[in-house]
Nucleic acid binder design. Structure first.
Lengths: 159, 159
DNA sequence: TCTGATCCCATGATATCCCACAATTTCCCA
DNA sequence: TGGGAAATTGTGGGATATCATGGGATCAGA
């Protein structure tokens, strides 16, 4: 498997460490770079995280703009300036920086949520809400498509 | 890691020294050149800083213009003319020149901000404002890109 | 001899490394 | 197919190294 899938809820220990779920670790290892690249998600209280693939994505985004151009500087400031590469200890744990925790309102437990090429880290309660809301929206959209019979028995919300 | 990321706020001591964040130091070491190359950022109250990679980039930028052309002279003046190479002491600290401090309005604390190939030094308050503004812009631009987002997943950035 | 720069050592707070362990899960082989 | 051995996983905590910072001593030039 080379994508982040499923979700896991884990605890921070007294030193603020969290284990990265085993299945995610093996995806990260495949990318072949030590450390976990993460940054505050732009438009939600969550942390975006991943390995070299995610870094490459950000780099490509910034690379579109000319060196020293205003836009590039701003992108770099907002993206590189707020991202960090967390060290992963021998047991596969990381320590979330205060800044990341504040952004996601994380205190003692976190939910890891696989999004394919990257994953997000949420405060579990907020994740549940977000999920419910997303499900709701999907359902509404399905409803609009109601004329098409396929949508009627929407496969619906898993979990 | 071979690029500057994240941001750190540090204090100047009574002698005007500031520690370069450890993670930045290791990036600089990789470039294999002693000293910190810096100059006042062109259009914002910040200091651009970096190692040999930054110097090379500037050289490339200037090299694109014909010798003796007006533009070349102006770039050279603005970049080379105002740049300095600060000495780094045994503990990884530098002393910012009065000129640099004045440009960035720095008094007793500074924010180091990673921009990938280089980093900037800001007065912390100004940095926060700039960050908020930049984040806003990125969000807006990402939204525009959203319409063509389908392309992102297709080729798949694995590796 | 004064001033500012440079070098060197000291120190508290983190961060990092390393070992431990219980609970599963996976594997293996009869 | 079952059951036990072995490897994995999430968690805990002590020991050590690193980092940011402070300040004395030394050195250079005026």
């Amino acid at each position: 498997m080379d994508r982040f899938v499923s979700n896991f809820t884990l605890r921070l220990d007294s030193k603020g460490r969290v284990s990265i779920p085993g299945s995610y670790r093996s995806v990260l290892d495949r990318g072949g770079f030590e450390g976990l690249y993460c940054y505050p998600a732009l438009d939600r209280p969550a942390i975006d995280a991943g390995g070299s693939a995610l870094m490459a994505e950000i780099e490509a985004l910034i690379g579109r703009y000319a060196p020293f151009s205003d836009q590039r500087e701003q992108f770099a400031l907002a993206l590189y300036g707020t991202s960090e590469t967390l060290k992963v200890d021998g047991e596969g744990r990381v320590v979330l920086s205060e800044n990341l925790k504040r952004h996601a309102r994380i205190t003692e437990t976190v939910a890891f949520v696989g999004l394919g090429h990257k994953f997000q880290i949420w405060e579990p309660g907020r994740f549940q809400n977000e999920l419910a809301e997303a499900t709701q929206k999907v359902r509404a959209l399905m409803g609009e498509l109601g004329s098409r019979s396929a949508a009627r028995d929407a496969p619906g919300a898993r979990e």
